[in-house]
Structures are given as C-alpha cells and as structure tokens.
Amino acid sequence: MTQDVTKDELTIAEIQTLVSLQLGIASVGEEDLLVSELGAESADVVNLIAAVEDKYDVVIAEDEIPEIRSVRDLFERARG
C-alpha cells in the first residue's frame, strides 16, 4: 500500500494533507506542533505515525516518537 513516489520527491505539503486528514483539521501549517497546537492526543500521534508508515513504507521506532513534535519533524522522518 505504498505510493510510487520516491522519498526524495516527498513534499511537506503531502504531510500537511496527511495530518489534516488524520486530525480532521482543514488548515495545517508546516511548523504546527502536533499536540500543543493541533490538539492531537497520544493515540492520534500513534495513528498519524501509522499512516506515515503505511504511505511511505518506513518504520518509526518508539524512541524516535518523542522527537516528532511538529508537522515538519514528521516530514523529516518520513523522508528518512
């Protein structure tokens, strides 16, 4: 279930869309903080990471999660 896009072509706009869909928020900024600004709860962060893993075929480990605070952090991690 991964896309044909290579990770180099991945844009932050794609991650913004993915966060929008997962959190049900129409407007998501590049630097928005997932928990404090977008209101994500712990389960939402976990589901968001699962969506990134499904779409971009990456595996994100537990100890990396605390580092993922913003939309940009998620983008950087998805890009690998």
Binding site: Q22, G24, N47
Partner: peptide
C-alpha cells in the same frame, strides 16, 4: 474525510 474526523472528534472525543 476532514469533516467526518472533525465531527466524530467533536461528539465522541476521539479520532
């Protein structure tokens, strides 16, 4: 999709 997630969250408190 955004509308569905938003409504579920607003009413039930989870996404």
């Amino acid at each position: 999709v955004i509308a569905m997630v938003g409504e579920i969250h607003r009413e039930l408190g989870f996404r």
